[in-house]
Amino acid sequence: MSTDGSAESRPAIDSPERIELVHVGRTLQSLQHLRVVAASLIVLYHTELQITRLTDGIHQHSLGFGAAGTDLFFAIGGFVLVYTSHNRKDTLGAFLYRRFARIAPLYWLFTFLMLGILLVAPSYLLTTKGDFWHFLLSLVFIPYPHPVLGIDRPFLFPGWVLNHFAFFYLLFGSLLFLTSGKRVFAVSAVLCALVVLKALFRDQSHLLNFYGATVALDFVLGMIVAWIFLARNETPWIIAAVFLVGVSIFATGVLQNVSEGAERALFWGLADAALLFVCVSIEKQWGWPECRLLSKLGDASYSVFVSHLFALALVASILRGLRLFPTLGVPGARIVFLGAAWALGMVVYAAIERPLMRCIDRQRRPRMARMIVAKGP
């Protein structure tokens, strides 16, 4: 295995996530485990809608903090791009190919699956209808008003997260010619400027409303954590202090019933960045406990993210049909929903995502080898 973290010089690795996380010859296990936390929070957050339907609207949403899972994914995304690109020569084309090959194929597959359901059994999709431009722009990660909801959400609803990631990849990749520090500063400046512009010119442009959402600041926080991580070793006192501050911010957000919206970055973003900082700092200095199960779950976190709404809808139908919800209650139903989402995600990862990524990796390697030969020694 190469010690420079170059994907081109390493043998294939089971998970595409591990490929991105390898740096100076090792994988950051804490990031894998944090992905499990993020995906689980997102699933639990989305169970609220199904439970509300099962209770005929009686249930009051009580897991607003589950939205923090999305912010954690954003923070991890910002960290990973800085971490894996540090002191690494790369081209914009190669960079974007790797990133979009990572997120697009599985997302497209489930988008077309949802289209099939809409055409065959539209009664199962109460908040979706066919719209050519909405569907097309969803496939290319461009925000477009949802024909039913009226907000910028793609055909496959969780894809709004990927729309933000796609923009972040384009912005980050376009600045690869800068040194790591200057790149972090430039990307952060653009994202912060968009947030400010949205605040000044609210509702003047749906694209500005989307890209200027405060959730974009989570990328900034993740990049800052990565830059600090690469630059220095923190003392135990600083790590402990950051942990306490993060817990305090998160607890305050829970007590104030923060969910989504403009304040999410202030609460969930800062709390998640603190958690990320603590975990990677601990691993850097003292190592991180190895847990094969959690690592495998971390590998499958993207599959869970893309497929979990299908699992939740299916389980809700089963619970309603068998009249099991009154027996399980809200806590029991949440456990069943969470288990089903992870079970489906693991199946999707093993049967679709991992073979697909290996196929893409095999196709990319000969192309990279030809480029190296063409350039010469």
Rank of each mutant, 00 (worst) to 15 (best):
262 A>Y: 14
263 E>T: 13
263 E>H: 08
264 R>T: 14
264 R>M: 09
265 A>T: 14
265 A>L: 12
267 F>E: 11
268 W>K: 06
269 G>L: 07
273 A>R: 02
274 A>F: 01
278 V>K: 04
278 V>Y: 04
280 V>F: 08
281 S>R: 13
282 I>S: 03
283 E>V: 06
286 W>D: 03
287 G>P: 10
288 W>P: 11
289 P>Q: 05
292 R>N: 11
292 R>C: 05
298 G>F: 10
298 G>K: 11
300 A>F: 09
300 A>E: 11
300 A>W: 09
301 S>G: 09
301 S>F: 03
302 Y>F: 15
305 F>V: 00
306 V>T: 01
307 S>F: 07
307 S>E: 08
307 S>L: 06
307 S>A: 15
308 H>D: 04
310 F>P: 07
313 A>R: 13
313 A>P: 03
314 L>F: 14
318 I>Y: 05
319 L>N: 02
320 R>P: 00
320 R>F: 10
322 L>C: 11
322 L>A: 15
324 L>H: 08
324 L>M: 14
325 F>R: 00
326 P>C: 07
326 P>G: 06
330 V>E: 14
330 V>H: 03
331 P>F: 00
331 P>V: 03
331 P>G: 00
332 G>W: 04
332 G>T: 06
333 A>R: 03
334 R>V: 01
335 I>Q: 02
336 V>E: 10
337 F>C: 08
338 L>I: 04
339 G>C: 15
339 G>A: 15
340 A>E: 10
341 A>N: 03
343 A>N: 05
343 A>M: 14
346 M>D: 00
348 V>E: 10
